[in-house]
Structure formats: C-alpha cells, structure tokens
C-alpha cells in the first residue's frame, strides 16, 4: 500500500514539490558555483529553500510515522520563510543583491512557493484526520 499523503491529490502535490525542489536546487547550485560573492545572503537563502523543498518532497512521498512530522516541519519552515523573506525583500530590498526563491512571496515562480506550503498543511491535516494514529504506527 502506498503512503496516504502521496495518493490521490497528494500525488500531484508531491509532483509539484519535486519540480520546485529540482528548480530551486539547480538554480542555487548554479548561483553558488558561479558567483556567490555577488549576493551571498540571497544565494545562501535560495540554497536553504532548496534543501527544505527536497525534504518536503521526500517526507510527503513517504507520509507515514515520523515522516509526517518531518513534512509538517518542512511546510511550516517554507511558509515562515516565504512570508519573512517575501516581506523583507520588499521593505528591506537593500539586504538582497539578487532575487531568491522566496523574494516577493515567490513571484518569480508564479507564487507557487507561497501557495504550496498552504496546500501542504491542508493536505497533511486532511490525511491526518482520515488515517488513525494506530494505523500510521502499524504501517510505519
């Protein structure tokens, strides 16, 4: 049996998370490898975001036992990150020499970084209420 968070609509959620994880990882790898000095804060933040997306993708794909807690942590960090960095990038734009994944609330990625953690939280809540903890423990 496959994981409850990676079935049905969750299949799509994990796929979109995977795409964002690849996009953010590749972009930050290129930025850090070619010109880290140009915008150290922005590029390191992009790298942090990339790692969080990779963790969220894996955790949601597994979706059982401890992975659920990891998924909750990842989507929470994402939402905090996109709200904090999104706001900072507007009120303190001098801090960032270049755009990050989370700048302007993820505008560069079609606001997917803003919407995705909200969908992730909604989905974790929904699947959480459907499967009993005992079932989770037995399967995990």
């Amino acid at each position: 049996m496959s994981s409850p968070t990676a079935t049905g609509p969750g299949r799509v959620l994990v796929a979109v998370y995977g795409l964002l994880a690849v996009a953010a990882s590749a972009r930050s790898a290129v930025q850090i490898a070619t010109d880290l000095a140009a915008a150290p804060l922005a590029y390191l933040l992009s790298a942090v975001a990339a790692v969080v997306y990779v963790v969220a993708t894996v955790a949601l794909a597994r979706g059982r036992g401890a992975w659920r807690a990891v998924a909750w942590a990842a989507v929470s960090v994402e939402l905090a990150g996109v709200l904090t960095v999104g706001t900072l990038s507007i009120v303190r734009s001098d801090l960032f020499a270049d755009a990050t994944v989370w700048s302007d609330y993820g505008q560069g990625y079609g606001y997917v970084p803003l919407v995705l953690p909200m969908l992730g939280m909604w989905w974790l809540r929904r699947t959480g209420s459907r499967t009993s903890p005992a079932l989770d423990a037995a399967a995990g």
Binding site: T7, G8, G10, R11, V12, V22
Partner: peptide, 25 residues
C-alpha cells in the same frame, strides 16, 4: 528527466490524479 519520472510517478496512481500529474509535467 521530467517525463520519465512523471510517467513512473503518475502510472502508480490509478485515479484522475495521475492525469493531473502528467498534465503538470
């Protein structure tokens, strides 16, 4: 990489959501 990974990921799901995965990919 996208299409092969999406094919494997979507084909395991036998509901309409597999079609949405393929659409996104």
């Amino acid at each position: 990489l996208i299409l092969p990974v999406a094919a494997a990921w979507s084909f395991a799901e036998r509901t309409r959501w597999s079609s949405v995965v393929l659409l996104v990919a």
